[in-house]
Amino acid sequence: MAAPEFDIVPPETIRDGSATDAYFLRTEETLRHAERNPTVVAEVTADQFPAGEFELLAGVKDAAALLAGLDDAVTVDALPEGTLFDGGPVMRLEGPYRSFARFETSLLGFLSHASGVATAALNCRRAAPESDLLSFGARHVHPSIAGMIERSALLAGFDGFSHVAAGELLDREASGTMPHALVICFGRGEQEAAWRAFDEAVPADTPRVALCDTYSDEKDEVVRAVETLGDDLDGVRLDTTASRRGDFRHILREVEWELDAREMDGVDVFVSGGLGPAELRALRDVADGFGVGGYVSNADPVDFALDIVEVEGEPCAKRGKLSGAKEVYRTADGGHAVGLRDRDGPDGAEALLEPLVRDGDVVREFSIEAAADRALADAERTGFGSGAAE
């Protein structure tokens, strides 16, 4: 059999459970040999108790697709996608253990990676709440997961992204105008020719955003772009490398000054390149929008684990974990609380776990817009991203 062209695990392998750690297959084999298949409650959890360090749940759509159709006896509950969580389960599975044992690896991967990316993106969104934010980080990750990166950024409130194939997957149009490579192809001193050719070549509905830092001073290139494209110019982008920036805030103020001097109030200033929440806070009043790359795409996954907490109706857990099926709550003051499922929750608290899979079917609709609204509302309630945490 010929080796695959790319090192990508195909969807059908994820679906049949082969995309797993070997010891789960050994577990299946052993339990089958012993004629054991207990009904269990298993919970996906990052932290046992709330500690005030919230993270944003993403990846639930893919997790639901994975778990649907496994066994009608398996039920799944989960927090709504776009919920900020802090301690306790984000998902609960109940049913015969062998029905879902081998899917743990992929399940945790779906939730862990997407939630880490979404949490980083929400940090950026909160750092620049009024700015246009685009996800530019697909170049930092394996192309097979670009769709997950861009969807997670949108879920956290980003306005768009750059990856074309991800756009086709998500039924959204990718954003972006020109790279330094385009300007360089025209040669030093020929920036005007590059901007003019771009204006002539691309569709009328493509924003005319000129990249203005390839060969000379940012202010100089911005003025030249204004003089070249005039009223057709929608914006300028500065993607200056960190080693050449100096006082970047001062540079942006100079650019804004020159645009104002030429009465070009309709020209937006867009900034990209090595940005995170700290830079967004520092520049949000002198720039109209930002492209954020590695801070979001390279985010550490959330360290989720799946643990059995009940077997045949009896509470149990390994050392370091809490036994018994649990419920999680959003308290009236915006906090997060965890309690046993068969007990009353805090006064005035909202239980967060909702049905996800019943009788083998997904019983929830997924909307990126609704999840983003939830994430931003939760951020307000919990105070997420209101300080300097990054």
Rank of each mutant, 00 (worst) to 15 (best):
M1Y: 00
P4N: 01
E5I: 14
T13S: 08
I14Y: 07
T20E: 01
T20R: 10
A22E: 07
L25E: 12
R26A: 14
E29R: 11
L31Y: 06
A34T: 06
R36N: 02
R36H: 07
N37S: 01
T39S: 09
A42V: 05
F54M: 11
G59C: 11
D62G: 09
A65I: 00
A65H: 10
L66R: 13
L67Q: 06
G69F: 11
G69C: 08
D71V: 13
D72V: 14
A78C: 13
E81M: 09
E81Q: 15
L84Q: 03
P89W: 11
P89T: 11
E94F: 00
G95P: 11
P96H: 04
Y97H: 14
R102H: 05
F103A: 03
L108F: 04
L111D: 03
G116K: 03
V117H: 04
L122I: 00
L122A: 04
R125G: 08
D132W: 07
A138L: 01
H140Q: 06
A146T: 03
I149G: 00
I149N: 07
L155A: 01
A156L: 04
S162T: 15
V164T: 08
V164A: 13
A166G: 08
L170D: 10
R172A: 04
G176Q: 04
P179D: 14
I184G: 00
C185F: 01
F186M: 09
G187I: 10
G187V: 07
A193T: 10
A194R: 05
W195S: 01
F198P: 00
D199A: 15
V202A: 01
P203S: 05
A204N: 03
D205N: 11
P207K: 10
A210C: 09
A210G: 11
L211Y: 00
D213W: 04
S216F: 15
S216L: 14
E221G: 05
V223T: 12
V226E: 01
L229Y: 05
D231S: 14
D234T: 04
T241G: 15
S243H: 12
F248K: 08
H250L: 05
H250R: 15
R253Y: 01
L259M: 09
R262L: 14
G266P: 00
V269T: 11
S272W: 02
S272T: 12
G276C: 08
E279I: 00
V286R: 03
A287F: 05
D288K: 06
G291W: 05
V292N: 06
G294Q: 03
N298P: 00
A299G: 02
V302W: 02
A305S: 15
I308M: 07
V311I: 15
V311G: 00
E312R: 05
C316T: 15
A317Y: 05
K318A: 12
L322G: 00
S323Y: 00
K326P: 02
V328L: 02
Y329D: 10
R330G: 09
D333Y: 05
H336A: 11
H336K: 11
L340R: 13
D342G: 06
R343A: 15
R343N: 13
D347S: 15
A349H: 09
A349I: 07
A351P: 15
L353I: 09
L353G: 04
A370Q: 14
D373L: 10
A375K: 12
A375I: 10
A375N: 08
D378H: 14
D378N: 10
G383V: 14
G383W: 09
S386E: 14
E390T: 09
